[in-house]
Nucleic acid binder design. Sequence first.
DNA 1: AAAGCCACTTAGCATCTCTATT
DNA 2: AATAGAGATGCTAAGTGGCTTT
Length: 770
Amino acid sequence: MSGERGHGDSQVKTGSKGSDTHKHKDKHKDKEYRHKDRKKDKERDKLKHNNSEHKDHAEKKNRDKERPKHTDGSYEKHGEKHREKDKDKDRRREDKVKSSQVAKPKKEKENGYVRDISPAAIKNEPEEDNGFCPSPQHNKASRRKSDEEEFVYKPKKIKTEHDKMSKKRKHECEEEEDDNDEEDIKPKKKKDKNVTEGKKSKKDEEKWKWWEEERYTDGSKWRFLGHKGPVFAPPYEPLPDKVKFYYDGKPMKLGAPAEEVATFFAKMLDHEYTTKDVFRKNFFKDWRKEMTSEEKSKITDLNKCNFTEMNEYFKAQSEARKQMSKEEKQKIKEENERILQEYGFCIMDNHKERIGNFRIEPPGLFRGRGDHPKMGMLKRRIRPEDIIINCSKDSKHPKPPPGTKWKEVRHDNKVTWLASWTENIQGSIKYIMLNPSSRIKGEKDWQKYETARRLKKCVDRIRTQYREDWKSKEMRIRQRAVALYFIDKLALRAGNEKEEGETADTVGCCSLRVEHINLYPKLDDQEFVVEFDFLGKDSIRYYNKIPVEKRVFKNLQLFLENKQPGDDLFDRLNTSILNKHLQELMDGLTAKVFRTYNASITLQQQLKELSCSDDSLPAKILSYNRANRAVAILCNHQRAPPKTFEKSMQNLQTKIDEKQKQLSAARKQLKGAKAEHKASHDDKSKKAVEVKRKAVQRIEEQLMKLQVQATDREENKQIALGTSKLNYLDPRISVAWCKKFGIPIEKIYNKTQREKFAWAIDMAEKDFEF
DNA sequence: AAAGCCACTTAGCATCTCTATT
DNA sequence: AATAGAGATGCTAAGTGGCTTT
């Protein structure tokens, strides 16, 4: 099946297709046509299907796009706007938090199931009682019963596990000290325990089997959350005086703020980013904002700026870092370890958990992916005043650095983040969250695969239905059905709408435009071929030619009628309409579930097909990688060929060439030996023939190995296996496969991955079926 | 219904670190 | 011991999708 799904031609990674800018310009023109088109569309719909009462979605879409977009993307403005909004938001937030703290007997959805939360259950957890280390009994009341229908692997003996756990927890909980089982809240004493026994408690924590415990049913994510807050970027260190910046050929000393921003640019001088017009324009604009009025009046042309000395200085610095002695390096390592130990963990409920990103992003120049309109803008430095801290009331609140304040300290246990701030480029919120190995991430991950497995049970029905819908009288239903077909068959992303001009021009299924597909009634020896060519997430190109069913093809032709290249292919559809529909087909179903489902089921099928119990271990692992690769191709997970790819490929090729020479030499010798043997017919020459024959064979094998390695590497040149492994493949499939074929799990998952998938490694048996 | 906000997952690239090779 | 190359980890951008506000 991988063959069927594999994308036709080789995929070329393009940050920006040559014609892109063109297309963009054309779009405006295109839009003007759209109004007319829409009228036609409507008429067409009415003619063909007299009952169409549909709202004209396209009309709204167009209006959006015609909205005047602000030409000034200045981040000051942005900042201002956001600050204003923030106040408002904050007020609302407060209300929300307050109200959420009041127990509401309400139906909550979790794991795709709607459950009744009894007020009594919530009453058990009064606000004040967010015990630091709640007793298991206490905890149990708020944790939900494990779901039989949903989880095949039901925790055994919940009760005993739980009770055992309660004892264990007491030891794990760093600030908890009493051995007494009965009481929940304990005064803290062993403050230093963690420092001295850090390793031990970490080790213990790795063994915590959260998957054998019950989960919260009330939508809350934790009862207790305590942490030390984020680590800020180190302050700017001005350059030594000898490192000069030149303007118009003359040295010029910059003030610290302008100098700092200049260093950001100087550090990137080797990158092709700095040659791009948009990047330079954005950078220069933001840089000028950091200048004193004097600097501003002097520095008016980026082309007259010479950063090379700064650039060389940084290169020398990084060189010096590499040349540091062992001891120095060790010292830095230790310091990093100390920071990790201090800030890298939090206590969530009764467990010490690893934080994912506890360092605040340092200031720098924004590097968008692909053709990003905001590339080069200044990403400003984040101060404590920008940070919202989230923790539980009864925890020791993190202290802001001396002389500073947090923006806010909040106690919202309906979310998982520990700290957040608003970033100034897009005005979006960034979060500090837990590591993938944490309970909170793991539960969600597990749940994701369970949803995908539920889809497996009803996917046939859904497929039958959308095929039926291809014949619908209503345009919107046909579009929905065709889009769903693409999402299912090609594992396309949903394709939310994006604000034009704010981000790179990329699309997913629902946002495909006419210009992104080509229809071929006949192509080579295939009928009804659709050619896709568009930039998806991260501006990764999706290029694929696939034959589709006639009805799909005819529908696509219909959708294309009277449209311009820049028009939406599915003008009556968006992700929210699609997901609403999917929700009706299956509880918890959204477009992205299809990607998870198809990825996982493909792995399972491929593993079944490819692996052979007689194979050697490396051969089995090769099969696994091949199966993994099939998924990566399906999901279009690409990577830039590694920088050293050509070189290492060349090295390999020289090795192959050498081997080939060796081989022909060996063959010649064999021939000679044979001839000699023919002439003399003696034993000695016969032996010589055998020896030579063996040599040839050995070299042939070596050559073969090298060639396989080369093919393998070549095949993987532009394919990234990691993303699917980490995000789309139910780890239980891999675990089961390992068990079945006696393969150590370490061959498939490295340490980090084993931590993330600990739940799967613990629970999946060799007969696990996705 | 659209727009906006928010929280969270998914993504590829850069850099660091370990390991095999010379 | 030095070095290259591979693999692991870190970083942060860019998606999805739910919910709220307009």
